[in-house]
Design a protein around this nucleic acid. Structure first.
Lengths: 245, 245
DNA sequence: AGTTTTCATTTGTCAGACATTTAAAAGTCT
DNA sequence: AGACTTTTAAATGTCTGACAAATGAAAACT
């Protein structure tokens, strides 16, 4: 009977887990220095390369940072928002692209969360956030904008909306959803007509945020979600048709 | 003219980045086998330990898995929900615990997203989800339940609510928020009276989900959010008072 | 006192070796 | 021929020992 459990895991994985748990449990606090690689090798009764592999695993998760030289070493890292953003985006992107999750499911999740931000965005938006949203709308109106630039601007618009809620935790959570959708969105070819429609909705959303009309904002986001899913469905239908002929 | 960023990064980090980018860009597809460590060492003109450190970095992010033996090697991994959940929870937990984010901000973000799930949960919940919610409510009613068990049951209840929305992407996103709050919640001492109040709200939430009353559900979640923040504020005030005397 | 040099410590990298695992290939028996 | 066993090659996992490079502290020197 094989348990498929962690008896058979690498030593470096076990050591990484031990240190990771110590950090999560607060036994190692931020900026605290870990023992040197040689000392860790002694403590865990393994060789230095094995310890190093464990430390690299932790570094990949931004749990530690290393510094060379005397009095250098591995230090418990304070996970900052940019680190967390990056990991969130990488993981979410791959989760979506590798698991043939339907466009609808991803889209629904994303807009559900975005709509949750709307009331706060209306109440707290600064002039900066509004300016960013307007600027992106303006960019979207330019003729001859490539599909990639269009999608990038779309992401920037929605991130400004989320940031307007002025809750960094929400911004962090949403970063994954919004950015991870971009590869999926890039598969949609936005015609001039559909761009026009989306720009109109973006404008109404920006207006409602400016005038603090959360219900209107929620409604327009809802419309945008529906319209996005319709566009996606058309693309998928067309592909299926052309593939079957 | 600077080339890109810091040429001063580790070789193993550079190699990991190169491979990671190849995976994200789709140049390496799921289940594809990477060259052996010896071959990679040749290709990148580094030694095998350095290549191994790079591979361990990728393994820590669940981007690859390795297999020993002939015809083994490193394979591009399909990131599954459990992997993504785990990373999401680790990152979120540390982000919250290390950056003195106020309880209110974290709580607001979490309940905003949870309320976004409410309408879907009402529409799609199965008997299973309801049963889990009821079971957790029952556990919460037991006298002499430790604070840890109480909080664990609280998490389980809310996860059941989120899962009832039947959108795995939402479940994944919420996992981080809900689980990461647990250490913060553990700091609150729940008196018998406050537990009673929360159980009452949980019951009303479960009822509204069962009877498909999204507005009622939203309202009670809102109440729960407010009440949780009130409890936290009391704890913080008491600490401040006792600290200043 | 201020500057420069030395120096010990620690991470980064390399080379080579052996152990262990694994599945394919070869061999053996019925 | 088919089923079972043994061999074997390839790959990762681990270890030893070594050297390079960075870095800050202490010592030496103006």
């Amino acid at each position: 009977m094989k348990t498929t459990q962690n008896d058979a895991t690498d030593l470096s994985a076990q050591i990484a887990k031990a240190i990771r748990d110590a950090i999560i449990d607060g036994k190692l606090i931020v900026d605290e220095r870990l023992p040197s690689e040689a000392e860790l090798a002694d403590q865990f009764s393994v060789s230095r390369p094995t310890v190093r592999e464990a430390l690299k695993r932790l570094a990949a998760q931004s749990l530690i940072r290393t510094q060379r030289g005397a009095f250098g070493g591995a230090f418990v890292n304070r996970i900052a928002y940019p680190d967390a953003y990056g990991q969130q985006i990488t993981t979410s992107t791959l989760l979506l692209s590798m698991n043939d999750i339907s466009f609808d499911v991803a889209c629904e999740a994303r807009f559900a969360m975005e709509r949750a931000c709307a009331p706060m965005a209306c109440a707290r938006r600064t002039a900066d956030h509004l300016a960013t949203m307007r600027a992106e709308i303006h960019r979207q109106s330019q003729v001859g904008l490539s599909d990639e630039s269009w999608c990038a601007s779309d992401v920037a618009f929605h991130r400004a909306l989320v940031d307007a809620a002025n809750n960094p935790v929400l911004s962090y959570q949403l970063a994954g959803s919004v950015e991870a959708m971009q590869p999926l969105m890039n598969m949609i070819t936005f015609t001039a007509r559909s761009r026009e429609r989306i720009i109109d909705l973006h404008t109404r959303i920006a207006d409602s945020v400016e005038q603090n009309h959360p219900d209107e904002c929620d409604h327009r986001l809802s419309e945008l979600a529906d319209y996005t899913m319709t566009l996606a469905k058309n693309v998928i239908d067309m592909r299926r048709t052309s593939a079957s002929t």
